[in-house]
């Protein structure tokens, strides 16, 4: 059992436990904190897959921005914080469906021959961020998705500000 495997197992255990606590927590703000722990676990997974840039970007974007935004929204909508555990049947039915889906995915996984392949070492230039940057601005490679993504962000920015601005006199 190598060190990387130990780290993977500990990380997977903590992330899945945090996910389960997230799914079953009563208070919304505690769920926000469990979400942050789960996202942190995902970032460590990215690090284990030798994508350090993506791991840190996950930390910046998800934990440093999206999670804080979610906590802000939780605080701004305060009256409905206590989530009542209504409809037990719905929970049980959904958990059965989720477990069946999970079992199906695992079955498909185990009958796939390449599922136990191990990693091949990466060459040096594939690990550099400069390669990533070059790929993003190369017209024959990924320039168009890059520009479309920036347009998407601009549209989201304008839309979110417009929707969330409280206009005077329109409340009643």
């Amino acid at each position: 059992m190598t060190g990387m495997q130990v780290i993977f197992l500990i990380n997977a255990l903590v992330s899945v436990l945090a996910g389960i606590m997230l799914a079953t927590s009563r208070k919304l703000i505690h769920a926000g904190l469990w979400l942050i722990l789960t996202l942190f676990g995902v970032a460590i997974m990215f690090g284990l897959l030798e994508a350090s840039f993506l791991a840190i970007v996950q930390g910046v974007v998800y934990i440093g921005a999206i999670a804080i935004l979610i906590i802000f929204a939780i605080m701004l909508t305060r009256e409905t914080m206590e989530e009542s555990h209504g409809k037990r049947t719905r929970w049980i039915l959904t958990s059965i469906v989720a477990l069946i889906t999970l079992a199906g995915i695992l079955l498909a996984l185990l009958t796939w021959p390449q599922s136990s392949s191990l990693t091949l070492p990466l060459s040096e230039e594939q690990q550099s961020i400069a390669e990533l940057g070059l790929a993003l601005v190369d017209p024959e490679r990924y320039l168009v998705p890059f520009e479309v993504a920036s347009l998407l962000l601009l549209a989201a920015l304008v839309g979110a500000v417009y929707v969330a601005v409280e206009r005077k006199g329109e409340e009643k």
């Binding site: 899945v16 996910g19 995915i105 996984l109 185990l110 599922s115 136990s116 191990l118 990693t119």
Partner: peptide, 18 residues
């Protein structure tokens, strides 16, 4: 060192939780 299936199982579990 870490087989591919471990990562896929982990992501499947997270997906079904989500």
């Amino acid at each position: 060192m870490i087989p591919l299936s471990w990562f896929l199982v982990f992501s499947a579990v997270l997906f079904s939780l989500g």
